[in-house]
Design a protein around this nucleic acid. Structure first.
Lengths: 127, 127
DNA sequence: GTTGGATTTCTACGAAACGTAGAAGTTTGG
DNA sequence: CCAAACTTCTACGTTTCGTAGAAATCCAAC
């Protein structure tokens, strides 16, 4: 239940990018803009129905990725955890399903850039 | 296109576990046994139709996870890459989609057991 | 306090993925 | 050549996701 659809991911990207909680309407507008940016100059951003955005937000809420403030009238939505946290969690999920964790880590480390290897060394305390 | 269904994963687990390439029939029998083991003593392993297994194998082949020898008459199937390789690749996929790779790695490392941290230090050359 | 516009919830439909397998076609040992 | 084994084709039910209209709800202004 971890993977996201295309639109779900786009919404999460917006929520992760913005610091404030956002409303469905705001998100719909931002989605139009970002899709326009991706589609090129001539490609006008497609306006989704606000109900579409709300449906997606509800699904994301059910998945535990988003929470909403129900107090305010236009409900405000925000990501439950940061993108980095979420992605790291995903990585652990992927890793966790393996009986041979060490072997996986070995392969994983083996194909990491030198710069990132350096980062990792630092993060690991590197006594 | 990276995620697998339940049966697809069960098949991959068998292919990863066995060293030899396996036939659809073999896999069907093994699937019956392993599902019986999971289901408990009273739960007799459900025999899938061979065509079911073949369908799944074809789908896995299309996904690039499995290859088959077409020469032999009962085709023989095997995993394209080891589970460790595959899982590590998945981890890179998850990580790759993030613009803030370092932050993700930080979170990831932060929630790794001390034993594994030690393993990682060794793997990283630990100069 | 009623009403209209904004907002949310409910319901729904089409496409794709997956579990499942019968029907039909192909291959091969005898 | 033929039957048994094997593979491919076709198909259906379920779940997930993009998409959104219809219905219900809420609040501000009158």
């Amino acid at each position: 239940m971890a993977s996201l659809g295309e639109l779900e991911r786009a919404v999460m990207d917006l929520l992760w990018a913005g610091q404030e909680a956002a409303t469905a309407n705001t998100l719909r507008d931002q989605l139009a803009r970002t899709s326009a940016a991706q589609g090129g100059p001539g490609h006008m951003g497609k306006e989704l129905a606000v109900t579409t955005v709300l449906t997606v937000l509800s699904r994301l809420e059910k998945k535990g990725l988003v929470e909403r403030e129900r107090g305010t009238r236009p409900h405000r939505y925000q990501a439950v955890s940061s993108r980095a946290d979420h992605t790291a969690e995903l990585m652990h999920e992927v890793l966790g399903s393996a009986p041979d964790r060490e072997a996986v880590l070995a392969r994983f480390i083996g194909s990491v850039s030198e710069g990132e290897a350096e980062t990792l060394r630092k993060l690991l305390g590197h006594v």
